[in-house]
Design a protein around this nucleic acid. Structure first.
Lengths: 113, 113
DNA sequence: TAATATTGTTGCTTATCGGTTACACCTATG
DNA sequence: CATAGGTGTAACCGATAAGCAACAATATTA
């Protein structure tokens, strides 16, 4: 396990925040052993639900984490999305809220099919 | 299991494409029993890798599927831009174009101040 | 130095994922 | 009718995800 994997990414984020494995585990509501195994690379396919909690505590992008975990495919679709991502950073909080509502409405209509 | 879940979504997509469970399984390189369990709701947390294959065969948005599976962040944590990123990922190309226009209008109004 | 706490890691155990096989049911073709 | 094929589901089983308790090693404090 000498290659760069999800565990390295999480470990870097964690140490950068001066958190121990156990402290992160406590905050993310995940066992410390599981986090240790993920970081060491022993755990091959951790649950997305676990990763979601970890990403939330570490304050890093969950989808980025999912991508590193090998769960996402980087296709053209996600690329066009990331361009929007760049556009968004120029907006104010209030405007971003409007975008959120707009997306929520879209998705609501979307889910009815 | 009377509620709308991932299985209902997959079953609808599958039948809409006139595919049997076994045929879908064959194309997606997943056992037919696993797909049956996912559709029935018996399987609680199918692997994202399995879902990726299924989504690819069905020609539907993988992240949308992930969202329905409960693997992506929901609206409780959508405080950062990165959460919008996740939300966007569940939309179609056409819908994303709408969001782009919406953002463009916002910025236009923004620049007038 | 001795006692205590904290670090990451290692069995052990339970639950669940996911495949192979077998089943019961239905449909079509001889 | 009978045989063949296709449908979804159930029984069984190996592999693994993930928690708990115990561990050795280090850091801290009295």
């Amino acid at each position: 396990m000498s290659q760069y994997h999800l565990g390295n990414y999480i470990a870097k984020q964690r140490t950068h925040k001066n958190l121990s494995i156990r402290k992160l585990a406590q905050l993310a509501n995940v066992s410390h052993t599981e986090i240790a195994r993920i970081e060491s690379g022993e755990r091959k396919h951790p649950s997305p639900l676990v990763l979601k909690n970890i990403a939330h505590v570490l304050g890093c992008n969950f989808l980025e984490m999912m991508r590193i975990a090998g769960y996402l495919e980087d296709d053209h679709h996600t690329e066009s999305i990331s361009s929007i991502f760049a556009d968004l950073s120029t907006l104010t909080k209030e405007e971003i809220e409007e975008v959120k509502k707009f997306i929520k409405r879209l998705r609501h209509k979307h889910d009815q099919n």
